[in-house]
Design a protein around this nucleic acid. Structure first.
Lengths: 194, 194, 194, 194
DNA sequence: AATGAATGAGATTTCATTCAT
DNA sequence: AATGAATGAAATCTCATTCAT
């Protein structure tokens, strides 16, 4: 893709994010996204295979960045518990900073169907595997319980954080997510400690 | 309602559950549900206001029963940790027993919108408040950490269990949910202990 | 028909008149009429062939009475101009007295279809022929223009009165119809005079 | 609108007029109109908000032209009685020339409801006000009766003409409307003369 | 590369009528 | 005679996608 093309590609993703966040998934018509992006309806199809492809791309693009952030951040940490804290901190603060993204990923895109949810699943899987990796490190370092079921625990950790974010959104964001990091991680650490 | 009417009402809900589970939410046309229930399309509308009303009723009816189960069960327990174990056990085994219900509530009905999601929200809220109640009991009994944030922790507990069920379904139910109860509850208890 | 049957027959017609007047033709469902009449839906079909038959019967029954009134009244008059005045007076005052009937015949029933409109046409035809008869009497008595086209003029007279009633209804009945009789008849008489 | 768009807009209105005239209001499905217009069903909705909007537009478009004709024609007349004659002549000959239009406006569109009837009411009101204007001119010129009630008389005149047209249609158009103009106007003039 | 007018499949819901009780 | 639960046909409108320009 030329840089011009790249530009329009991102315009469309930005537009999709905004339109879905503002109007909800069921009112995010392709024509609306096109209008918001400042292109013709047909132009969308020069960059994306179909509507679902927009959403999948949006998800991959934005959450991919996020997962990369996780990877980068835990490189810099020494201990598993610090890594876990870092993960939770990024998870919460990034979504708090990008409310549209939070809203779209936690609420709206879950209404979508098969293909998209597979794509979501894949991105989430990467993230969950990252959590698993940290858990293993913690066990290996003797920090976490030796007979922890990592396949299960990674779900418990992810599910717990995911629910906190969703609940925060639904409640109308009356408090900060950042303020929930310490208490959340403390609960995890205690649950995991050797 | 006469008993005959009640009967048909439940036939339709049963049919809806089966059709959604088998065909997915977006292929659960009213006519399909009617056919499965053995009634005419129009008959549906003698029992339900509209399509969404079927789903809301389905949710209320089936999950309401479940929440009642939770309430009843923890009456019989003495300690908060036993209550928590009971909750997780019922949560997992009930959904394991009713796979269609699990599939529909965890995967399919989340695609629906506004009214239904409000209804889902209300049932889930009742459940989450039940968890909170157990947490408070544990704190009062000196069993759980005194400075636990119950509003946060109830989300962590619910979110963790919810994710385990969803993941089990998506994975194709290759293991039993019942086998995950102990490990899950142990994680919670350790995280909560005073 | 027994007297009991007759009674229920008229209950249903009364109910139909009321329901149409209050809810409009398109919201006058058979079930609503049945409820208003205090009978079951199915009972309607013991007295009427179908929905249209209710409306036709309603029209025949009520407007038939009216046409009879016209006939009776002009028997008592000596001159054609007096007969014409009488006709207009009855036309206006009867509909002013029975607003529901006026509303239903002038506004609502005109929305109906073929069969009903044929029936309306027949009743109206009787009335128009009555007007024609009066016109002929006037001509024969040397009171009205000798070369009047009676087939045309009866329409002019009926159409003019009909429009006055409809307009009065649509305007919200802000004035009395009775007050329009003299001016209306004067216009006719001048137009007809030899 | 480009000229191409305008063209299709009028194709659809033409089709609607034809379909309603041939099949009656209740059998004038959107799909039938679309087929007659040679466009896809969905295309209709690029030009009209909904089905009622087609009918309202049809009425406004066609009857608006007619009312304009009335306005133009009476500009050229000197006396009120000539103006009245011109109005009746146009009224009768235009509808005689456009039988479909006559049929649709006199018979079919009166079956429709609320919005459409409001729109009809507005167009008719303009016409009735035009008649009133002519009546006033006649009074001012000393041609018509000084104490004429113009608000009433305009209805008598319009109602009379309207009934003649409707009756002519229902009768199966066995005579010409044009042949009724003189006799109709003579009746009016005699009724109005000072 | 870009446009945007045109396409057309597809599903919910209403309500007059029936018929077993 | 009366009931009223059940029937099922039928039509509007939306919106993702295409393709001629």
């Amino acid at each position: 893709m030329t840089s011009r093309k790249k530009e329009k590609y991102h315009f469309i993703l930005d537009a999709a994010l905004k339109v879905i966040a503002e109007n909800g998934y069921h009112n995010a018509q392709v024509s609306r996204i096109a209008k918001e992006a400042g292109v013709a309806d047909g132009t969308i199809y020069l960059y994306f295979k179909n509507k679902e492809d927009i959403l999948i791309s949006l998800f991959r693009d934005r959450l991919g960045d996020l997962v990369q952030l996780f990877h980068d951040s835990i490189q810099e940490t020494d201990s598993a518990d610090e890594a876990l804290r870092k993960i939770c901190e990024i998870h919460f603060t990034q979504l708090e900073t990008n409310v549209n993204l939070a809203y779209v990923t936690q609420i709206e895109l879950r209404q979508s169907s098969i293909e998209l949810r597979k794509a979501i699943g894949e991105v989430v899987k990467t993230y969950i595997e990252l959590i698993e990796k940290v858990l293993r490190q913690g066990i290996d370092a003797g920090l976490f319980h030796a007979d922890l079921d990592v396949k299960l625990t990674r779900l418990l950790v992810f599910g717990a954080m995911d629910e906190v974010v969703t609940s925060w959104l639904i409640s109308g964001r009356k408090y900060t997510l950042a303020s929930q990091v310490d208490k959340t991680v403390d609960f995890f650490i205690r649950g995991l400690k050797a």
